[in-house]
């Protein structure tokens, strides 16, 4: 555990904090990658996911796309793009956008899909146009799952952003690789602690947001199990809140 304190000491040492090469600046780069890539990915994936979720078309393609990308090694993609685009921030950013698209896409269409069909039929019966159904029914009810998708995209990118240093893209990975090549375990450990804390903080923030966006009127209640199940159908629209919790 002494080594752990060396890592903490590295973080607390003011010589490692300030300036363009300090960890505060590197942390900023890590965050910039994360939110930059997720924002770009969301602009692409959310409308696409909504289209798939609303029409039900291309669902299989979206499912296999989001599933298949899980096996794609991010380091390989990053390095391949690094060889193509050169060192710097472009290859990492593009890699992270590609990484963030599948979970956001999945969140967007799953959010629409989890809605009870009766709710949508009711909206249609009330005379809502398709656009109104999307905007007033599907988007609000699907929001918890969409935020869930964005949350997992953010987590994936904030973790993978550590690799950006491999193609000279900066961020906190710089210290990890430097620590490794110079056998400075305290440095690698200190940066690792920072990355982990950053990921945990972001996870906490998004878990909170996910709770807050559950629309009023959707009762977030655990289904009561065993012996007490009613033979009548469960109340409308219980699903999204349950799934997105």
């Amino acid at each position: 555990m002494n080594l752990f304190f060396d890592g903490i000491a590295w973080i607390l040492d003011s010589a490692n904090q300030g300036g363009p090469g300090g960890w505060i600046a590197r942390l900023g780069e890590q965050l910039a990658y994360t939110f930059g890539a997720v924002a770009i990915a969301a602009v692409i994936a959310v409308p696409l996911g909504y289209l798939v979720g609303h029409t039900g078309r291309g669902r299989d393609l979206a499912v296999s796309l989001s599933g298949g990308f899980r096996a794609l090694p991010s380091l390989g993609l990053l390095i391949l793009l690094g060889l193509g685009l050169g060192i710097g921030f472009r290859a990492p950013l593009l890699t992270f956008v590609i990484l963030a698209i599948p979970p956001i896409l999945a969140g967007a269409y799953a959010g629409f899909e989890a809605i009870d069909r009766k709710t949508i039929d009711a909206a249609r019966a009330l005379g809502m146009t398709e656009l109104q159904i999307v905007g007033r029914v599907e988007v609000p009810l699907g929001l918890p799952l969409l935020i869930g998708g964005i949350r997992s995209g953010v987590l994936q990118v904030v973790a993978t952003a550590t690799l950006a240093a491999y193609v000279s893209g900066g961020a906190l990975g710089v210290f990890i690789f430097e620590g490794f090549s110079t056998r400075n375990y305290a440095e690698a450990l200190g940066a690792s602690i920072l990355v982990t804390v950053l990921a945990l903080v972001l996870e906490g923030i998004f878990a909170l947001i996910q709770r807050l966006v559950v629309p009023r009127g959707v009762v977030a209640k655990e289904p009561t199990e065993i012996r007490t199940r009613s033979s009548r159908p469960v109340a409308v629209a219980g699903l999204p809140a349950q799934e997105g919790k």
């Binding site: 989001s66 979970p103 969140g107 799953a110 997992s152 799934e243 997105g244």
Partner: peptide
């Protein structure tokens, strides 16, 4: 699977 993918 959706729950796993979206990290819910």
């Amino acid at each position: 699977r959706t729950a796993v993918l979206t990290g819910a």
